[in-house]
């Protein structure tokens, strides 16, 4: 096209923006349809269910307004599960991030056997939860387990059977499992930092710690934000690990390891009170969304310039 001069640039600029919007929505059309039909619509269904007395196998499902929410919010077990869930997150997320970051940095240092070590640290993440949970129960076994023996040396009782410890004993399993995940994420993040930055900074005279503080950490920000937000979502939705660690008594002795999703599962699928289970899910969803948005805002604002 033989168009030239400032006029052409304006026209191209305008049409460029429109074109970009058009291509954006073209790219998004199928995914948006998917998320709306397969995720949002069923979730909205849960909202509707939460306003009904909805026995899962029942035939009549009368509208009950906010009765399910009242019932859930006045249930001691719900609050216990909520408090537990926060404890899992408070203990597990920092541990997972710190250990994952340390392992990733160490792996970057290792030149020889790097692949071998990377595979080793990835192993927990591929171990099926059912198998892992059984082995961990052995390790905590009050009479035979090495971890229980260590706890005993420290003057602590059998971790899984002690209300004050059981939750953290399961947290350890979850951190162990997600360590491999976290390492891969951090490694990908570290690899994505262009070497040129290090080279440039090195030429400017920056050394070890300075490089780490001024290049690695800021440039890893997107990875960190992702890790924090995603770990929060994982920990606030813990379920499978908890269920498998205390199979005969889901939620552990006296409900000390129960989580919100376990509460939802028991209420909905074991006891068939789907209306209340849906109400608890709506509460969980609102809390999660709030926390995630807060994290995104705070974390992104602080380091993104």
């Amino acid at each position: 096209m033989a168009v030239s001069g400032p006029a052409a640039r304006t026209r191209r600029g305008l049409s460029l923006r429109a074109r970009r919007t058009l291509s954006a929505y073209t790219f998004l059309a199928v995914p948006l349809g998917f998320f709306l039909a397969i995720r949002i619509a069923p979730a909205a269904g849960a909202l509707v269910i939460s306003l009904h007395r909805w026995n899962i196998v029942g035939t009549d499902q009368p509208f009950v307004g906010l009765a399910n929410f009242r019932e859930v919010l006045s249930d001691r077990q719900f609050w216990q599960a909520a408090a537990n869930t926060l404890r899992y997150a408070a203990a597990g997320i920092p541990a997972q991030l710190a250990l994952g970051f340390a392992a990733a940095l160490l792996l970057r240092r290792a030149v020889r056997f790097r692949g071998f070590f990377r595979t080793v640290y990835f192993v927990p993440f591929v171990t099926p939860v059912v198998a892992a949970a059984w082995v961990w129960q052995w390790m905590y076994s009050p009479n035979f387990g090495p971890l229980a023996m260590i706890a005993g040396r420290l003057g602590l009782p059998a971790p899984l059977r002690t209300p004050a410890l059981a939750l953290y004993a399961i947290t350890a399993l979850v951190v162990w499992e997600y360590l491999g995940f976290q390492v891969v994420i951090f490694l990908a993040g570290l690899e994505a930092i262009p070497q040129v930055y290090y080279e440039a900074a090195a030429v400017d005279g920056a050394r070890g710690w300075d490089l780490f503080r001024h290049i690695t950490v800021p440039l890893l920000n997107a990875t960190l934000v992702f890790s924090v937000v995603y770990a929060t979502i994982v920990y606030l939705q813990l379920f499978t690990q908890v269920l498998n660690m205390t199979f005969g008594d889901p939620g552990g002795p006296l409900g000390n390891t129960a989580t919100i999703v376990l509460y939802v599962y028991t209420l909905g699928f074991q006891r068939f009170h789907m209306g209340q289970a849906a109400a608890a899910t709506v509460v969980l969803f609102a809390a999660l969304l709030g926390v995630a948005l807060l994290q995104l805002t705070v974390l992104t604002r602080r380091v993104e310039y």
Binding site: W134, S141, P142, A158, L160, R161, F247, G248
Partner: peptide, 10 residues
């Protein structure tokens, strides 16, 4: 006896 002497539901 010890509760949860052996691991697993059974």
């Amino acid at each position: 006896g010890v509760i949860d002497f052996f691991p697993g539901g059974n």
